[in-house]
């Protein structure tokens, strides 16, 4: 467990995360506008709405310009014959080992944002836990899915 896993996830992950963070920001801005309108209708101070916008800007800068890059830099994974090794987390670095023999099923998922960059995420489920590798290149994700399900097809004697 001393070495970090070798492989990094797709470069475009940063862009995809930035887009989804922007969407969240726009929802935040929408709420700010609603507060301003309500402030006008029910005549309470505009400062609530302005404060909300300030919060939006701070959170937006963090989630769009800082977190995606850090997150991408930390994200590593490696698929061995007998286990899956992943590392993630910005402040708290988590490293997880999942033995192939314990893998129950593997899914790939692709939302509209990931689709735009030809990316897909890979979800690995054991009987007790779920692990996700976000934003892999599409063909890579599909390849890994098939590879893992092939490797996991060892005899599962129990559970």
């Amino acid at each position: 467990m001393k070495q970090t896993p070798q492989k990094q996830i797709a470069n475009d992950a940063i862009k995809a995360w930035q887009i989804s963070a922007s969407i969240q920001l726009s929802i935040g801005i929408l709420i700010g506008i609603i507060i301003l309108i309500l402030g006008n209708v029910f005549s309470f101070s505009y400062w609530y709405g302005i404060g909300f916008f300030g919060l939006d800007i701070i959170l937006g800068t963090i989630t769009i310009f800082i977190i995606p890059k850090l997150r991408w830099r930390r994200w590593r994974y490696e698929i061995f014959d007998q286990e899956i090794y992943i590392q993630y987390g910005i402040l708290i670095v988590t490293r997880t080992l999942v033995p192939m023999a314990r893998v129950q099923h593997v899914d790939t998922k692709q939302g509209p944002i990931l689709k735009k960059y030809d990316l897909a995420s890979l979800t690995i489920s054991t009987a007790a836990t779920v692990h996700e590798i976000p934003a892999l290149l599409e063909h890579e994700a599909y390849g890994l899915r098939d590879q893992i399900s092939e490797l996991a097809r060892v005899e599962q004697d129990d559970v």
């Binding site: 467990m1 670095v93 988590t94 490293r95 997880t96 033995p99 314990r102 009987a127 007790a128 836990t129």
Partner: peptide, 29 residues
């Protein structure tokens, strides 16, 4: 079912780590 280690910034400096061992039970984990 899986094994995990977690370290935050201070942990790394102090050479500490938190471990998390998962097993299966009737509540799925």
């Amino acid at each position: 079912q899986a094994f995990e280690t977690q370290q935050h910034v201070l942990h790394r400096k102090q050479r500490l780590a938190t471990t998390n061992s998962s097993i299966l039970n009737n509540f799925a984990g």
